[in-house]
Design a protein around this nucleic acid. Structure first.
Ligand SMILES: [Mn+2]
Ligand SMILES: [Mn+2]
Ligand SMILES: [Mn+2]
Ligand SMILES: [Mn+2]
Lengths: 217, 217
DNA sequence: ATATAAATTTAGGTTTGTCTAAAAATTTTA
DNA sequence: TAAAATTTTTAGACAAACCTAAATTTATAT
């Protein structure tokens, strides 16, 4: 139905869309997709003709409901494939994204629905990101960033803000994984670094830089 | 490494290659890929420049070892994905091919090797076609066509010649599935139709047209 | 309010893969 | 073997997605 490239543009624009309806800028799309502004303008015109977004010259773009739906369905496929790669094929959580970027463009409703069923209808991907349903609904209870959590409160590691390979590898290295129960034992006022208790067993130190990128509930 | 289209051309040429080294004709490639001869000539020049095949004007083409390797690896990916779709996602054997045509172009050595392991290193796809190994070896004991099998001999349904959706659906309808044990009870001289015994239990009739397209061992 | 800077669009091209129509080479037929 | 038929290649175009350089519009600073 839509090309590889069209789906990637719609996904990028969806992710860049504000809660308030400010148009997404040409430059931000170009940066996100690692392409040039001139190329973005070309593609925007094409997507506008197809009624996937609203475009006013120099004013940025906003997805139409149709465009938003294509974006969300692509995100749904991406995250379901990530679950498959992680749960079934034992890919590390830092390895799944690049392959899912390819798999998300396979065109078969049947395939994604059967895969969803095979995986037991997962609600979140290996990074804790929610998987939208067939009709595009997000069951969104957003998580809190660990650096805002009060001391001694028991929380569960449920997501990450930074999705980079290096950050994900770092968490793995210090044994921080999704689903883990943790508590802040001590917060250092000087640099906002934290001492954590993991599963009531092990103590570790993390910097504020790391804490800011961890989501808990 | 190679584009979607390049891989499809190499796969088509590989399948059209004679045992004797006759060049594959432009027209046969065009027909196989449902494109035009002029387009084939263009692509042939490109693949020839990349040393994936040998091309002499008006004489047809032959794959180089490198081109043959790309073709076989693409077939390997196709068939492994077909096993996944059939065994794990419960696709019918007539449904797997079209989706595998897309999945075979996903570029990740790690993915295909992990998938292969996940499936227990299958040797044949859902249609009985052999899956080449990582180094391109086929363990090829070719099957016999059912219409050449002698009467009363016990054989196992191991493959099909015709891979069309309609033929595969027909076999399913008359309860002929891969791995089934069968024996020819009677051959009608008039039209070469057969009476078969399935698993020593059920008798069915099949036409010569069907028998010619069934492979057994 | 201008001048400068930044963002965006336009103009003109490239690459990949496709097409039709016409020319050239090869094969078949008589 | 010469004519006819078939196959293959070439010429010229087109659409998708990208690029650089230049022009235009909008935003920022003095
Ligand atoms: Mn991802
Ligand atoms: Mn993810
Ligand atoms: Mn197939
Ligand atoms: Mn097959």
């Amino acid at each position: 139905m839509y090309s590889f490239t069209e789906e990637n543009y719609l996904k990028a624009i969806y992710k860049l869309s504000d809660v308030d309806g400010n148009g997404v800028s040409t430059n931000s799309i170009a940066e996100n997709l690692e392409t040039k502004a001139a190329s973005v303008t070309d593609m925007i015109k094409k997507l506008s003709n197809k009624k996937l977004l609203k475009y006013e010259k120099y004013k940025g773009v906003n997805l139409t409901p149709k465009g938003k739906d294509v974006a969300i369905q692509t995100i749904r496929k991406h995250r379901i494939w990530e679950v498959f790669l992680h749960e079934k094929l034992k890919f590390g959580w830092e390895e799944v994204h690049d392959v899912a970027e390819q798999l998300e463009h396979i065109q078969s409703e049947l395939l994604i629905n059967k895969l969803d069923e095979f995986l037991g209808f997962p609600t979140h991907d290996p990074h804790g990101d929610p998987i939208p349903g067939k009709n595009g609904e997000f069951q969104g209870n957003p998580f809190a960033s660990l650096d805002t959590v009060e001391i001694h409160k028991k929380v569960v590691l449920s997501g990450v803000i930074n999705h980079s390979v290096s950050f994900l590898q770092h968490l793995k290295k210090i044994d921080l994984t999704l689903g883990q129960q943790l508590t802040i034992i001590e917060r250092n006022d000087y640099d906002q670094s934290l001492k954590l208790m993991l599963n009531d067993q092990v103590e570790i130190f993390i910097s504020n830089e790391v804490a800011k990128n961890i989501l808990v509930k």
